[in-house]
Design a protein around this nucleic acid. Sequence first.
DNA 1: TCCTATGTTGTATG
DNA 2: ACATACAACATAGG
Length: 280
Amino acid sequence: MPELAEVEFYRRQWDPGVGARVREILLHPKARIFRGIDTARLVRGLAESTLVASEARGKQMLFHFRGRGRGASSLWIGLHLGMTGALRAEGESFRPDRHDHLVLRQRGRTLVFRDPRLFGRVRFAESTGEQRPDFWTELPPDLRSRAFDLEALRSFLRRRGRSPIKAVLLDQERFPGIGNWMADEILWRAEIHPGLPAGRLDAERARRLHREIGFVVRGAMRHIAPAFRDPPRSWLFSHRWADGGRCPATGAALVRETIGGRTTCWSPGRQRDPRPRKRS
DNA sequence: TCCTATGTTGTATG
DNA sequence: ACATACAACATAGG
């Protein structure tokens, strides 16, 4: 499920464990989420460490643990939730089931990473000080940062000029945290057809797109991050998968079709396709 | 049984 | 190099 605001919601679920020591680590070492890492080393590093902080960027999360004893050794756990990942805090006596792949026990509490479909991912790195690992520092800038200005957006659109705009918005290197529902929501607000080649947006459309990215990112953070509430009914969100769903702006029947490899929903008429129609 | 799923990655092909 | 299409990953639910 998780896009940037859901990821932020889940990150906060481990906040009760900040400042507390890890007393026991339970994991399924062969689980796919651990692909490419040495789980024995991960367990050694986490043992007796203290969770000190966490942050989220796009769909990625970083948890900072500080080791005990000599020096200020740090352990960094990177988490990606894939399609079905979730974090939560449970009580001391919580019993993990087969989908709870990484479980950290603290005094009075259990931190759980659950992921039935295993499309998520765990990374880790050790450092001597506060230096964040490369996998974190190399992430693209947040969409709310000054770096993501209109010029940056227009250069992305140029570089992927022949791809449908929907596919471009899903590119995590350029639009970190945007996923399938946010992309549809943004294009619906900006009145842009999802199949339009990115290079065909005029200056006005690019401005509009930039504005609506900001609106949807901030709105999602406001509605979802604190309590996982759905966005308001005035958004496309709650109408897009409903059978017989109608555009909250025009009342027209919504359309669903695969674009850029993902099921895409839009409001015909509001989001007109300016490309030549294929004739059959 | 078949289809779908708020994600990513690798391969084949144009 | 760029782009698209598709399969794969693994599970649950309609």
